[in-house]
């Protein structure tokens, strides 16, 4: 199972699409590793700087409808090869969210109010997160604040994370 802990990258915008996560011109690459330098190259977000903001973090917290648009699994792969195994958002586009779980990664939804609260209390500070998939709890911590946030995830999605992905699961079961 992958590890779900690390520093948080806050992306304070809804509807971040998969073209922004990894532009289509890089879909000609035939390995996941080759996508590494291009993660969020075209992200349309004021103040975001790909050179400084990507490297040291490993969990994304963002707003609604993250990963909308293209079906490209290159989006989770580009995150994965940059050390991001989890995205926490108010909501996700269906295909992106399924792709994350299919890769054994986590795409966790929290209610609108909780996301607002997290942005309000943590966005401006260095924040760390650890996600306990089995018990459905997020531990969030900044220098001045520390708390537990519960989340919901289906058993199927948990199983995909535990088993390392959908290919193995399906080949064993169907």
């Amino acid at each position: 199972m992958k590890e779900f802990k690390g520093k948080v990258l806050f992306l304070d915008r809804s509807d971040i699409n998969t073209d922004e996560i990894i532009p289509a011109k890089y879909l000609t690459e035939n390995t996941k590793e080759a996508l590494k330098p291009y993660l969020m190259e075209d992200l349309n977000l004021e103040g975001f700087n790909t050179d400084n903001d990507i490297d040291e973090n490993s969990i994304i917290i963002t707003r609604a409808n993250f990963g909308c648009g293209s079906s490209r699994e290159h989006a989770p792969w580009a995150l994965e090869v940059n050390g991001y195994n989890a995205v926490i958002a108010q909501s996700f586009a269906r295909i992106f969210q399924q792709n994350m779980f299919n890769c054994g990664m986590a795409a966790i939804e929290l209610p609108h109010k909780t996301i607002d609260y997290i942005f309000d209390k943590y966005n401006s500070k260095a924040t760390n997160i650890e996600i306990d998939i089995k018990n459905c709890v997020i531990f969030i911590e900044s220098k001045t604040k520390k708390e537990k946030i519960e989340f919901e995830i289906s058993r199927f999605e948990q199983e995909l994370i535990f088993s390392g992905g959908w290919v193995e699961y399906a080949d064993n079961n169907y």
Partner: peptide
């Protein structure tokens, strides 16, 4: 329905999708 590469892979291999 559109799917990602992993779902596609399982579709190719087993003819099923979730």
């Amino acid at each position: 329905a559109g799917v990602g590469t992993t779902d596609l892979e399982v579709g190719i291999l087993k003819g099923v999708c979730a």
